[in-house]
Design a protein around this nucleic acid. Structure first.
Lengths: 197, 197
DNA sequence: TATATAACTGATTAATCAGTCAGCCTAACT
DNA sequence: AGTTAGGCTGACTGATTAATCAGTTATATA
């Protein structure tokens, strides 16, 4: 791994766990054994470093989901929906730093007057919204899911899992303890009530 | 309003909109027309000022819900659940600074080694969880709501509305546009399926 | 080997900010 | 009028930090 990649990785962890303001360029440098001027050699400012981190996180998330869907086959839309939610929660545990970063306020604040930042966030959340929407559409086609607005229902499911992950990351409630209940609720809510699946 | 209350109010707005690190004691002072030393006269440190703000927000939230339930009567548990969710969303719009503050990471970070902070957050989230739980229990007693774990289901509903409010505060998706769908989903998910309400 | 370019660094700077302190002003009480 | 005390302030300090820059080392290429 190149020094630049080292720095990017260290910055991801630090921005995620301490936040933007509470991470100094010196800290990032120390974590990689470099001098602080080296960080500025690779990234011209702290803000640019942050944008590179976010861009990297976006690529990581999009890759993870594209690999997941390339290798998985689903019996029907309802199964796909439940499986996708499970994978989202697995990813939130496995790549906790990505979700911690997205649950900080700084990226959204920056996005207010930085178009690139805004775009990264939109790409990430559209990816999330799309996967749930696709499962709902598939389920409506194969009859496993009731007639609901796929986009809006998808966004509601995203709100729920995003909220659960936030609660876990903030040490409020454990997402794991609610897992079975979540799946049951999603089935109740989405399942076609005119057929027994 | 006393100068101390002025400062507390200004600090609430600034901590909520800019965050803890990005709010300087000088800014808080300037917003109230006081000298920065005055802020330190009333609150011995920046952290203590933040804790006073959070304590105040906690009292505000608990008061709002206790007034709401004192004056409202509900036909049944399912109506109570839907009404409570609506009131939560109304409050999140009306007292946006409270929810913005709660959607920052700093309070949870501070709570890791500050017992008082931890307690304020627990009081707030227990209040939220309790109101949904109470509605679910009532609904199970009067037959309008199905047999579900009231605590866990309550937490799931809280995750959903908390997630929606976060999306709105982060300018990702508009909670208002999802309102009708949210209410429909809650009814589908919680309603007793053995009776037509 | 010579040379050019990229990678890296130590020292420094200018600005910001939490917190301190000695003293001033005002209102209440005697 | 004199005294006391709480509320308030301007001026200051020490620490931190993003960013710069002149200069050094490593690498690759001719």
């Amino acid at each position: 791994m190149s020094k630049k990649e080292d720095i990017l990785h260290a910055a991801t962890l630090l921005f995620a766990t301490h936040g933007f303001k509470d991470t100094s360029m010196t800290e990032v440098a120390e974590m990689t054994g470099a001098a602080s001027a080296t960080v500025f050699y690779h990234f011209k400012s702290k803000e640019e470093l942050f944008l590179s981190v976010l861009s990297n996180v976006k690529d990581g998330i999009l890759d993870e989901f594209s690999h997941y869907f390339r290798e998985k086959k689903f019996a029907n839309g309802l199964d796909m929906l439940v499986d996708t939610v499970s994978f989202y929660l697995y990813l939130a545990g496995n790549k906790a730093e990505w979700f911690l970063l997205l649950h900080r306020y700084y990226p959204y604040k920056l996005a207010e007057d930085n178009i690139a930042c805004r775009q990264f966030l939109e790409d990430i959340y559209n990816c999330f919204a799309d996967i749930f929407e696709k499962a709902l559409v598939k389920g409506q086609q194969d009859g496993s899911i009731d007639t609901l607005s796929p986009r809006k229902t998808g966004l509601l499911i995203l709100s729920t899992v995003d909220g659960m992950v936030r609660f876990k990351n903030c040490n409020l409630y454990d997402a794991g303890a609610l897992y079975n209940e979540l799946i049951a609720v999603i089935r109740r809510m989405a399942a076609n009530q005119n057929q027994l699946t």
